[in-house]
């Protein structure tokens, strides 16, 4: 078992003819992911190293039975790419594109919620997700990921996601699924969405959560863990000593209240019964202890 992706996931790459799209399509395919096609309206009928290119996602879906997309188009075109995938009936949209304006993200997030409530969006500006040995969509270096469970990982940060996989892999601890939700203002999938999915997943016995400063997603996750989760959670929050990030002025401070600092997030998580490491290595050690007692 796993969450969101497995060996049956069939992926279409939107932006496959770009240099990044091509690179990751082939890399994910080499890992074992079923990359069944790509899209580019101007290059329909051609192929990228044997992966067929279609004009639209709808066409790619009807020809290949794809149920997921990976989006690697430039920021200006990404909102339309997300909506195209949803309208084509794709169940899982993984948007890796970074630099999308926040107002656009808010618009397509709310449009999906209203018109396509069963479609899951991961990202934007995320490293993707991996169910080791079965499906890797995105940037994650698959070699660092050891599969088979019992730990699920959810992270807001890219490289720290790989760090977490490395810490666990180095100790011989396997992972069910590792999801990088991205650090943008309006992530399609939240910590809570992933925690709920891991709670329901039979293979996942414990969850590692990697947060960072800013916003209040970690505090909201802490509340969810306290109220809803039976499985143990280990967390690390980056940025205890980081300089305050982009100041959102007074209105932003009011929205998030006193929340937002790494310390406040760690306190909230600890109060919810989460074991919190002060750095990724310590979090890895804490998880090793949790796994030993499972």
């Amino acid at each position: 078992m796993s969450i969101f992706v497995d060996e049956k996931t069939k992926v279409v790459v939107q932006g496959i003819t770009g240099s990044q799209g091509r690179f990751y399509a082939l890399r994910n395919q080499a890992y074992g992911t079923q990359v069944v096609g790509g899209t580019n309206p101007k290059k329909a009928g051609t192929d990228v190293d044997g992966i067929p290119v279609f004009a639209t996602v709808a066409e790619a879906r009807s020809e290949t039975g794809a149920n997921a997309t990976m989006i690697l188009v430039p920021a200006a075109g990404a909102p339309a790419a997300v909506m195209e995938a949803a309208e084509a009936g794709i169940e899982l949209i993984v948007c890796l594109t970074e630099g999308i304006p926040a107002h656009d993200e808010a618009r397509f997030y709310n449009a999906l919620k209203r018109d396509f409530p069963s479609t899951r969006l991961i990202g934007p500006n995320c490293p993707g997700l991996i169910t080791p040995g079965k499906c890797n969509i995105g940037f994650t270096p698959g070699d660092d990921a050891l599969g088979g469970g019992p730990v699920g990982i959810v992270s807001r940060s890219g490289t720290l996601t790989y760090q977490a996989l490395g810490e666990l892999g180095g100790k011989g601890i396997g992972v069910s699924t590792c999801v990088g939700i991205g650090g943008d203002p309006v992530p399609g999938t939240s910590f809570i969405d992933c925690l709920a999915a891991f709670e329901a997943d039979a293979e996942t016995k414990a969850v590692m959560m990697i947060g960072e400063i800013g916003g209040s997603a970690e505090e909201e996750a802490a509340e969810f863990i306290r109220a809803e989760m039976s499985k143990p959670v280990v967390a690390y929050v980056a940025g205890v000593t980081a300089p305050p990030g982009k100041k959102m002025g007074h209105a932003g401070a009011i929205v998030s209240g006193s929340k937002g600092t790494a310390q406040a997030k760690m306190d909230a998580l600890e109060a919810a019964g989460v074991k919190v490491g002060r750095n990724p290595t310590e979090a890895g050690d804490l998880m090793a202890g949790v796994v030993a007692r499972l």
């Binding site: 940060s157 890219g158 490289t159 720290l160 760090q163 690390y236 980056a238 940025g239 750095n279």
Partner: peptide
């Protein structure tokens, strides 16, 4: 010097610790 904002922040944390 680090790659990725999260890892860079984490590096500051560890140096401090």
């Amino acid at each position: 010097i680090a790659n990725g904002a999260g890892l860079a922040m984490s590096t500051l944390d560890v140096v401090n610790q």
